Computed example of a mutant assay.
Amino acid sequence: MEYIKAFAPATVANVACGFDIFGFAVDEPGDVVELRRRDEPGIVITDITGDGGRLPRQADRNAVTVVMLRLLEKLGRSDLGCEVVLHKNMPLGSGMGSSAASAVAGVFAINELLGQPLSREELLPFAIEGERIACGSAHADNVGPALLGGFVVIRSYQPLDVFRVPVPASLHCTLVSPDIEVNTKDARYILRNEVSLKNAISQMGNVAGLITGLMKEDFGLISRSMVDVIIEPVRAILIPEFNEVKQAALESGALGCSISGAGPSMFALSRSRADAERVGQAMQETFAQAGITGVVHVSGINQEGPKVLEKK
């Protein structure tokens, strides 16, 4: 194979009560990477679109190529030469797993180009390194679902233990990305290092309830469990009109609504696509009333993860 074009999806991390341990993939948006073999050894970024010139072009500093370098080193294939083009299809600092999509698209594409020497599960540690480069934190709640698809739980980081949880087929996500930016490092910096025993107990109950609700297809339990008493109250101040937008989503029939990742994007879960589309309109209109424009995406839970768009 001389050329490959691959897609990796956006993701919703945390999912209300599951800070750094829950995440799920959506159908769109997502990043696209193109790899083309070249005669000289080494990974070279030849172009990046959609980033406004903000991302580094050096292969050892960009999430899309760092993962490739680490994988090639592991496989003893540093002799391989590739030209890389990255197409960013979501805003930076959007809370939709932008850097994770780049990292997953990169590591997935290079693995495909080499004939799939590693499984997707084996690619996960490399994808995590892309997150470390991008935001300074090697978390897996975005790269996990972007790479494996579906709703993912990170049970442990040492050792890494990640698994998928079944979800109702009719469950749909509304993802609203307002035209503002929240820096992931800033959003992590403002978090408290300690929580009260009362809040910890409440959060653990909601985590258990959400997983049980998803597996039993109990929408009432899902709704009752989508409550975050630790992270959301702190980060909500970074998103203008957060409370108003959340209330609009709930009044329009959403099961629950919270911050997507570190924000500013917000997500809601609904019983059906029709409900999710109605919720999206209400959330977008509420932002608009405050003079904030934004984009709405509605999809089911993406069970596929990354995929090959073209190869030759």
Rank of each mutant, 00 (worst) to 15 (best):
E34L: 08
R164G: 04
C82Q: 10
A63C: 09
G213I: 03
F7K: 07
I180W: 05
C257N: 01
G130A: 08
R61D: 12
A100F: 02
A200K: 03
P240F: 05
D27K: 13
G106T: 04
A63Q: 05
G205D: 05
G144F: 04
D179F: 14
P41E: 10
C82L: 15
K311Y: 14
P56K: 12
A138C: 13
E112P: 10
G136L: 10
R192Q: 07
I128L: 05
Q158H: 14
G150F: 04
T65S: 10
A101V: 08
H297V: 07
I237W: 13
C17E: 00
E181D: 12
S119T: 15
L250W: 05
L191F: 03
E251P: 10
E73A: 14
G106E: 02
V67N: 06
V229K: 06
D47S: 14
V162T: 05
P166F: 06
Y189K: 14
S202Y: 14
E277Q: 13
Q116F: 15
H172K: 08
R271I: 09
R37H: 09
I43S: 03
G30I: 01
L160D: 05
L238Y: 00
C173D: 01
L92M: 15
S225G: 06
S156A: 13
T65Q: 07
M226R: 02
T184R: 00
G30A: 03
F163N: 07
A268V: 07
G115M: 12
V143S: 00
A134I: 06
V26R: 02
G18R: 02
S225P: 04
S137G: 09
S170F: 04
A127V: 09
A276G: 06
L55D: 06
A248E: 01
L35G: 06
V33G: 06
Q203P: 00
I180D: 03
N142F: 01
L309M: 13
S196E: 05
S98G: 08
D27G: 10
K88V: 14
G106A: 10
V85L: 14
L86N: 07
R36F: 12
Q158M: 15
L148V: 08
I110W: 06
L35R: 09
P306A: 08
V162S: 02
E28N: 13
N14D: 00
E310P: 11
F242C: 00
V176I: 15
P240L: 09
E83G: 12
G23T: 03
G300P: 02
E310G: 11
I48R: 01
E40A: 15
R235M: 00
N142A: 04
G52M: 13
L86G: 05
P264V: 00
T49L: 11
L72H: 05
H297L: 10
V153N: 01
P56R: 13
Q284V: 15
V195S: 04
L75K: 06
R132W: 13
V12T: 02
E122H: 12
V182S: 00
S78D: 11
G213D: 02
L71R: 05
D141H: 03
G261A: 03
Q116V: 15
E121R: 15
D39G: 12
A187M: 00
L114E: 08
D179K: 15
N142D: 05
A248W: 01
I292P: 07
